[in-house]
Design a protein around this nucleic acid. Structure first.
Lengths: 337, 337
DNA sequence: CTGAAAGCGCTAACAA
DNA sequence: TTGTTAGCGCTTTCAG
């Protein structure tokens, strides 16, 4: 059995309050401080955060609910966040809900039972129903990457529409007009925004929209493979494809390889995220790159702000929108019209 | 403030023990069961796992300490484990120690304070010093992928030596004799085993070892890039390279691309892990593939076994060794001697 | 089957 | 500054 504060009290002859005070930054007489530290050493004492959590009604734990840990965008954000949160004494419980609304709901309930101090969520259920119960606790919720309807809370987003517009702009400048898109699942915020950017850019350039050029994918590698295959099959005259997330970009490259298509001679491609992957492609892929690091830092900052100073609650929800960047490779050809 | 069992007791007129018994699968009179359930509904009661944890001295939480969440091998294993553990009611606190021994040590202490019921660790410190303290609690430790010296506990490993031998065997069969290797960091168990396999295969084939063909990398993408560049520079006659983890494989492909090397005409390559990446390479990469899914399931199974039935402790440490598989692509040429 | 009561390890008044 | 004490919400004897 682990040592407790009582053991320290007994060993030092001091009262519990003194020990507690020592641990919580109170003033303790130098002589006693030394005694306590010696006892800690001897007993191998480690604070029991469980007991502390029960007493203070704060577990120093925050829950993270994401659609897929294998998704590299999620993994990178979590890595960054966890680092910061832990350095502030917060533990992170990550729940991967496999892009399943029911599992997402269960994950939130699981976290409620564990009395986490806050939840960070990249939501699958766009109605936000799964967060209703947690929000009633008055504890903070921060949304990553996706807005939802029913819940008013802080969020860190990416300017997806602009991201897509930028990519399309690049294609259009280089003379492309038959441009396909491998989009994300319907109902997902980022997917809709990116698609909107696609349409807007075409409209601005006066290029008519063609339905067969729009493939509705599912943000998975297999979806990317299928998307590329279908777009190529349905549109023999297509000269360029924009792929709207990393997994599908990898899938599209698999498709390109397996069909033996030459990039950029036969097809120009702009992908999404993971600069290292883009470098590993032949030729180097042009991509839209999201600032995952910034996102991670902002999320951590926001939730820590809520957690540390409890005053400023119930203000306007804060929404931060970060910009993406295009990293040019050699996967876009210049078309002579 | 959240509802407590007391509130349920008050609302139903029952005693605390009855409510507790209800939650813990005891027998409760049908009539009371209904009453309790109604009260739960009304009060939006959710069990407080913190209080339960304090009382039962079991937090239903397990800590996971890994070198790098961004490492895809880690991420996949964790995803698989977390899924299983959560479905058994266990939360997972993942600590990414950034391949830093000091951070690894801190992570373990952090988890001790939170009184996790067990630790799963892919160790960075090969002496195991960081686990000593936790082991004294008598709670289970399971090691992933790497053995360590000082600690006797269960582990799930991969037959790394055989994996490397198989890859080398493939090269040798196809007529390669000047084969380079991009190895992992010294002191890391898997890296040493893979290197050993490399040497063994060469010896068996009667091929002399050449030091300039052995690059000591660090399991990072950048390390892979540098490794490939250096091997190519130092060994103009090298015909094949074996890369010993996924990140370095990606790095090697970046290097190959940036140097404009043709695979497999100018250089044959066998990489490691991530079949999807291998498919996305042109030409499709031949890789050694580790059974991440199996590893995840085995780890979860082992720790759950320890956690559920506490009898069979202090037995012989259980070591499981899983086999890898070669997934053939088109990145290895047949050499006519 | 159910109720009363003790106590897990800690914090936070309050008193000294 | 330090000691005493009362809980935080739950489980778990022990009676009834």
């Amino acid at each position: 059995m682990a040592a407790t504060m009582k053991d320290i009290a007994r060993l030092t002859g001091l009262g519990l309050a003194t020990i507690s005070s020592y641990f919580n930054g109170g003033n303790v007489r130098e002589k006693n401080r030394v005694k306590i530290e010696k006892a800690i050493e001897e007993l191998h004492y480690e604070v029991n955060e469980v007991a502390r959590g029960l007493k203070t009604n704060a577990t120093k734990t925050i829950g993270v609910v994401i659609p897929e840990l294998n998704n590299i965008f999620c993994a990178e954000i979590i890595t960054g966040m966890e680092d910061i949160l832990r350095s502030h004494g917060y533990a992170t419980i990550v729940c991967d809900c496999r892009t399943d609304k029911k599992l997402e709901q269960e994950a939130v309930e699981f976290l409620i039972r564990r009395r986490v101090d806050g939840i960070i969520n990249m939501p699958v259920d766009e109605t936000g129903a799964h967060l209703k119960r947690f929000q009633k606790t008055g504890k903070p919720i921060v949304l990553i990457d996706r807005k939802i309807q029913g819940i008013s809370c802080d969020s860190v987003l990416v300017d997806n529409k602009k991201a897509a517009e930028d990519a399309m702009q690049l294609f259009i400048e280089k003379g492309h007009r038959k441009i396909g898109i491998i989009g994300g699942p319907e109902g997902i915020f980022t997917a809709e925004e990116r698609l909107e950017g696609y349409y807007t850019a075409l409209k601005k350039a006066g290029i008519p929209i063609k339905n067969s050029l729009v493939y509705h994918g599912d943000y998975t590698i297999q979806g990317g493979v299928r998307g590329l295959e279908e777009l190529v099959r349905e549109n023999p005259d297509m000269t360029a494809v924009f792929v709207t997330n990393y997994e599908m970009t990898m899938g599209a490259m698999i498709g390109v390889n397996e069909l033996g298509i030459q990039i950029p001679e036969q097809l120009s491609v702009i992908g999404f995220d993971n600069l290292q992957f883009a470098r590993a492609c032949r030729p180097k892929l042009t991509i839209v790159s999201q600032p995952t690091d910034r996102i991670a830092r902002e999320i951590a900052r926001i939730i820590l702000e809520h957690l540390e100073k409890k005053e400023e609650r119930s203000e306007e929800p804060f929404m931060e929108k970060l910009q993406t960047e295009i990293m040019e490779g050699k996967s876009v050809s210049i078309l002579n019209r």
